[in-house]
Design a protein around this nucleic acid. Sequence first.
RNA 1: CGGAGUGUAGCGCAGUCUGGUAGCGCACCUGGUUUGGGACCAGGGGGUCGAAGGUUCGAGUCCUUUCACUCCGACCA
Length: 569
Amino acid sequence: MRFSKLLIPTSKETPNDATLASHIYLIRGGFIQSVGGSGLYNFLPLGKRVLDKVKQVVKEELDRVGCQEVSLAFVTPASLWEESGRYEKYGKELLRFKDRKENVFVLGPTHEEMMVNLVRQSVKSYKQLPLNLYQINLKFRDEIRPRFGLMRGREFLMKDGYSFHADEADMKREFDLMEETYKKIFRRLGLEFRVVEADSGAIGGSGSKEFMVLADSGEDTIVVCDGCDYGANIEAAVRQEKVCDAPAPQLGKEKVHTPNASTMEELAAFFDVDPFYLVKTVAMRALYDEGRSEIVLFALRGSDALQEVKACNAVDANDLVEVSEEELASAGLVAGFMSPIDVPEGVRVIVDKTIEGATDMICGANEKEYHTTGNTIEGNLDYHDIVAVQEGDLCAKCGGELRYTKGIEVGHIFQLGTRYSEPLGATFLDENGKSQPMVMGTYGIGVSRLLAAIIEQYHDDKGCIWTKETTPFDLYILVSNVKDEAQMRSAQKLYEELSAEGVDVLLDDRKDRFGAKIKDFELLGIPYGVVFGKKLSEGSVEIIERKGLAKEEVSLDEIKDKIVAKVRG
RNA sequence: CGGAGUGUAGCGCAGUCUGGUAGCGCACCUGGUUUGGGACCAGGGGGUCGAAGGUUCGAGUCCUUUCACUCCGACCA
């Protein structure tokens, strides 16, 4: 296609709200356009081409393993969400609105309900299972803080797939198949990624894995092991139980006056013990459906940190928020001196499972300026894993050292079980004519986010660098001076010959000078460029490889074959 | 929601303190020159100054209210 005919509004200026490379270059390259800020974007012709290519890869790989594409209605009746129980649970991110008849609808942030509804209407027998249905459609999440361009928009393109099975084992088989398929997809897109254990979040379900594109700008912290292939989101990471070389405090059961010792550091110094032997008690307010909430104390070792997602899951809350000192006081608690032992009536306590049975522990006394020593954590308490794995902790799988890295979540697969099929009544008759809820899996890929992830992983200080499967064009032909008839004529000839071979060519036939055009070539990130310029009078042109910007002089007779070889290779 | 800040041309900004004919750069249009690293000359178009109300002879500027957006912390593909 001809550059002069395409809408590619490139710009020298960096938008002032853009900090991420992907955001800056996608806007500057004229791939996308912001719609009044606020996490909404238009895809311009170039961005749409990339999007379609990514979609195509996703679709091909899914169809190859038997998934079937559908397209669900975008507007969802709220009643479906009430049936599944997520209408309350999903929170403010779910955009709700009414039609003229005052019926309530939502814009789907994910479509479990809609897909289950589709299937329950048409699938009645085990003979129709298994089934894996997906769509690549817009989703809307009213994000608290949209930012980073396509990385966290409010409206975004997602592939969401749902599988339906007669039993757990078959669902697990499909789950593994999807894991392999996703790996193929991300490999084809040319991404460097890691599959990690994950928390299931608002979707629900048991086993879940995330596909993380490794990039420093990633919003997720992932824990990886240097010794083996273990990887997990910090929200779900586990470790070998910690041991402590420092001696346990030799203190009996006592109540000690501890003025000015309300933090773990102060307390460790006061008693001259390792924080390992202190009990850290964190108070949070847990929020539930219908506006209910309660104060919960989370107790763990002083040497550990609370992992909020794990904590939230432990109490099965929708969210955890901080508690003010006044609220604590009215519940009979004193900040800095709290304890999981002898708590006031009505305060729920969750204890980290690594301190179950721990002895010689120092706790708050639930009284200002007092702590108690010589405690043993035992009895009928509610034990859960609520600690955040830290760098340097040891891998539960191989004993190697764990470290943090950053990732962009581009895919997430879940073993759902009957979390949706049961409440929504998606049942089938098995071989014995008995009614059973379908066992489900759900699988997502952030398609529009992938564009951002690709650029985060592949860019330089000049612009985008697209991978083979994602580039909007295979080749950029740059005509240095369009008024030079020889240049224009041979460029056009090459353009036509390559187009006939099925190579996607962008012909830069704009009246601008060389400088402006080469900058746009670098900004747009098309893998190869051919320059028709000064050397044409000697019968040669220049090939530029976008990645690394290496230049190669090639004679006119060879250029076509060289390009075909590069693009196909 | 908590804290900080900004709303003036398509984009980036000045002007607001101290009220007096709305400006600059980029982009855009016309003509000409130029053509290997974002050219130059000349001419030109484009604005309810976020919105509403108030003070004033006069408001982008002062007062009140309101809306939107951005940035820093808790969510997710």
